[in-house]
Nucleic acid binder design. Sequence first.
DNA 1: ACCTGAACACCGTTCAAGT
DNA 2: ACCTGAACACCGTTCAAGT
Lengths: 186, 186
Amino acid sequence: MPTPERTSLADIVGAARDIVEKEGLANLTMQAVAVRVGVRAPSLYKRVRNREDLVRLVTEATVRDLGKQLDAVAVNGDARRDLGELCRTFRAFAHAYPACYRLIFAAGSEASRLDVGSLTAAAASVLRVGMELAGPGEALEAARMITAWAHGFVSMELAEAFNLGGDVERAFEYGIARLADSLATA
Amino acid sequence: MPTPERTSLADIVGAARDIVEKEGLANLTMQAVAVRVGVRAPSLYKRVRNREDLVRLVTEATVRDLGKQLDAVAVNGDARRDLGELCRTFRAFAHAYPACYRLIFAAGSEASRLDVGSLTAAAASVLRVGMELAGPGEALEAARMITAWAHGFVSMELAEAFNLGGDVERAFEYGIARLADSLATA
DNA sequence: ACCTGAACACCGTTCAAGT
DNA sequence: ACCTGAACACCGTTCAAGT
């Protein structure tokens, strides 16, 4: 006789994201997730292969959300201004969900590798601005430069690695301005 | 009656670095370290507070090594050329020790925060090039832009996040060239 | 078909007892 | 002074038994 479902994959991933953000990745235990969704830990294995798989699902949900935020950035027609908006939105997302953001480029083992599609979708807006600024011949290189810089910057911020003083806001705006200059000039 | 020391902190950290690089962070267990240095796991706690502390020590040793490599980059007097050498050395280090490199900007909790001194020392060479390129008024912003881009780039590479094809080597050299242009022009 | 208790292997850590 | 076995709490995961 079938038993009614008492939870769902969406519930489980949602609970996991919450735990990662509020209590840290180390406290994301199967037991903690189970309590939140109202089942016992072994039941989670009906919907999730293992803990590593759950972390991957959390990461992919985060990438999709980031992609949506970047997609929603208004296109001004002014490539320079679009670049600034895009970078600030990217940074704001990382500040809003630092623990989940950190997972995105932390992939180590094969099993934790992200789905290619979700990364590609998230990169679409950046690719468009790269095209606007640098033209079709160097759009990909330009997009990679923008993403690398933006990710590196917020990654260092989140690690509290900017410890030489100075104004971090100013350093971020400085970076946007230099990027716009150099990509458009090239 | 005193017992002779059968290991040392340096031994322990060395073994831990080896394990992280060859078997991954997840396989860095106190037991695995103990076997390598020839004691039982509980003995490690005489020299290391806990596992998290050991990971921090591994990270700091890695930062010091990276700093040494960057310091050893020859100064050509040509800031543009120095920038290229510095970035390529940085990237080569990350490729040589990917698992340990990843730890550097992964710091989450307070206890895993790196010693400020070791980060500052590693940044000295970059700061010098930032000064050469952008002048004293914007040396710090320039150094932050260089570090953010270089870290972001290799971080994405290590995560295999460049999945739109294209030539990654070319994208790296493109980035160096754009950085040199924009920082020197500003 | 889903859920559970019981069980297992494994891990970090503590501590009293050895030398 | 350092090292160890024994012990504890905790975690991921499996599985037979329930409904």
